[in-house]
Design a protein around this nucleic acid. Structure first.
Lengths: 347, 347
DNA sequence: CTGAAAGCGCTTACAG
DNA sequence: CTGAAAGCGCTTACAG
């Protein structure tokens, strides 16, 4: 139990309100008094009790809005868990989290959601943005005109006034895959990239990171592709089959996105399961099983949960404590897993 | 802002104290009244506000003791950070964390520390135990006689009444290394194990896991060793040199514990840097650099921070909320990193 | 068995 | 500029 505001008040011979004004720079206090109180607080080693603070502040009710796009994907469902976790925590601290989910990508819906949030008088917004001029403008307007801070997550829009971004470094993710592929193949042979969409910026970053690092560190490897499968298994299978036909001695596949099942089926049908080294992404769907069955050699993944959790907490810490994030981009860790490091079911 | 105890009291036509007694089964209440209050609370969707609860409970001051062994090692220093983080959180919630560090392993010191904790009237203990009959007995006595719950971390003593254990699954860690080594070597050639102490149970588990998995999944690999280097670089270098002499075509080294620098020096002197595949443990010391320099191909690590954080929080949740851990053994995740997944400096 | 009151540490109108 | 008081939601002696 630490020093309380009451003890400081007694020591300084003033009221608790005065101590509060001094310590929190609220003005309406004689500078000398403020200074003296601060000094005494310092000497007594005062640390504000967050509990008292939060309970008292809970009369204000800090409201945080979250706008989620592509809510129906497995990845976003994981992110959602993180948001809900943060929501529970914020709730406990007397705040509220408002969630608005958008099924598919749509700039219009995003704008509508933002407007709705503003009407609900949120004091901060965490959102998955979208590369669209209207959206960027609206983010800037929220920050500058309405003074509502915005944190982006999962996707970023760099040239805006958003407070910070929480998500993966796609290039680094591709590099990690390159390092693994180099070791898996002994640094030689032909390796194919199968990606999702050529238009998706985070997937392109993975591809770019992979290509550049292979070129730099494993010049003995020849890259095929990227080919695109639009994250669909049927198409992924066809793409893989075509590659196997064209490149019978293929050593490895880097799959940047979904379509795992399709590729694995194609591999199974060649009878070369385990020989063709495969690196895939994300710890969801049947990916762990495919790893256990020997199709996937390494899985690279990100912590989806934290991408939901952190943005909300960053805003809460800002609004509650005035604490600012220490970096503009918070990259989530890149996890490498093999079949022996599949985590137990979480609580 | 949710439903409060006051609202329930009004709805039920009783006092707030009565609602509290009903909802928290404190007795001294007519069963019918209790039942009715619970029903109303349920209907109104009551969720206790942790803030009010904590602030009020902070008069009790839950005190948690932590006993740390081998406090001078880099690993334990990381663990310490986690303990301090939990300490700050517990502090905020009105509790106290008492830390007692023991430099070297000593059963006697552990017993003394435990006794000291008891005199300080802690309501729970988190500790790094030690395979000694006296210590085990004392743990049981604390739990059964004094009703002070004990959580072990980092090392475990299985056959005791300790509440639970937080730490690494050593066997699984060894298996993960085996999987990596199999891929690095293409499943053939000779591979050496260099371990720390033959007497250290967690290192032995790693060795055992590695050996059994190699035998099972990569029968083409022949294992040399384990040799022991007592976690000393000079000795590690000698051991490695001897192995290189005996086995000139060595493909890989699995180093279960410290001595990295020594082994790497020996490798450098053979001029086969990067060709001899090496898997080492722990994200500390110069290990990241050695990875960047091409000596270490994969690092396997555990989250040291969480091994300090969780035990304290488990006890706090137990004492504060009556929440019991859901498993008896909480294995920390096993992280695999290559040079591309070295995390940025944490805050 | 039940209620009224005090208290946890902080913030915030309201008077003056 | 300063103080006294009320209040955040809960728990806990104390009376009765």
């Amino acid at each position: 139990m630490g020093v309380t505001i009451r003890q400081i008040a007694e020591a300084a011979g003033v009221s608790r309100g005065t101590v509060d004004r001094a310590l929190n720079n609220r003005g309406r206090i004689r500078p000398e008094v403020a200074e003296r109180v601060r000094q005494i607080a310092e000497e007594m080693g005062y640390k504000p009790n967050q509990l008292g603070r939060a309970l008292s502040m809970s009369r204000n009710n800090i409201k945080i809005g979250v706008i989620l796009q592509g809510a129906e994907t497995p990845f976003m469902k994981e992110v959602m868990k993180g948001i809900e976790e943060a929501g529970a925590e914020v709730d406990n601290l007397g705040g509220t989290v408002l969630i608005h989910t958008i099924e598919h990508q749509s700039a219009e819906d995003v704008l509508l959601a933002m407007e709705k949030m503003r009407q609900e008088e949120v004091s901060g917004i965490a959102m998955v943005p979208l590369e669209a001029e209207e959206v960027k403008k609206e983010i800037n307007r929220f920050v500058e005109e309405y003074h509502i801070p915005v944190v982006t997550f999962t996707s970023d829009v760099e040239d805006t006034k958003r407070l910070c971004f929480v998500g993966q470094n796609g290039v680094q993710c591709g590099r990690a895959a390159a390092g693994l592929m180099g070791e898996l193949t002994g640094g030689k042979g032909r390796v194919a990239i199968i990606s999702g969409y050529s238009t998706n910026t985070s997937l392109s970053s993975r591809v770019a990171g992979f290509q550049s690092e292979i070129k730099k560190k494993y010049p003995g490897i020849k890259i095929i592709g990227p080919e695109y499968c639009f994250e669909e298994n049927a198409l992924a299978k066809e793409v893989a089959e075509k590659i196997f036909k064209d490149v019978p001695d293929l050593e490895g596949i880097y799959l940047t996105s979904h379509g795992e099942e399709g590729v694995c089926q194609a591999i199974a049908e060649t009878g070369k399961t385990g020989q063709i080294k495969m690196i895939a992404n994300d710890f969801m769907g049947r990916n762990y099983e495919l790893m256990r069955e020997g199709f996937i050699h390494f899985l690279i993944g990100q912590d989806a949960r934290i991408q939901g959790y952190e943005p909300v907490m960053i805003l809460f810490r800002l609004l509650f404590n005035g604490e600012k994030p220490d970096r503009e981009k918070l990259f989530t860790e890149i996890y490498i897993r093999n079949e022996y490091t599949i985590p137990e079911r979480r609580r």
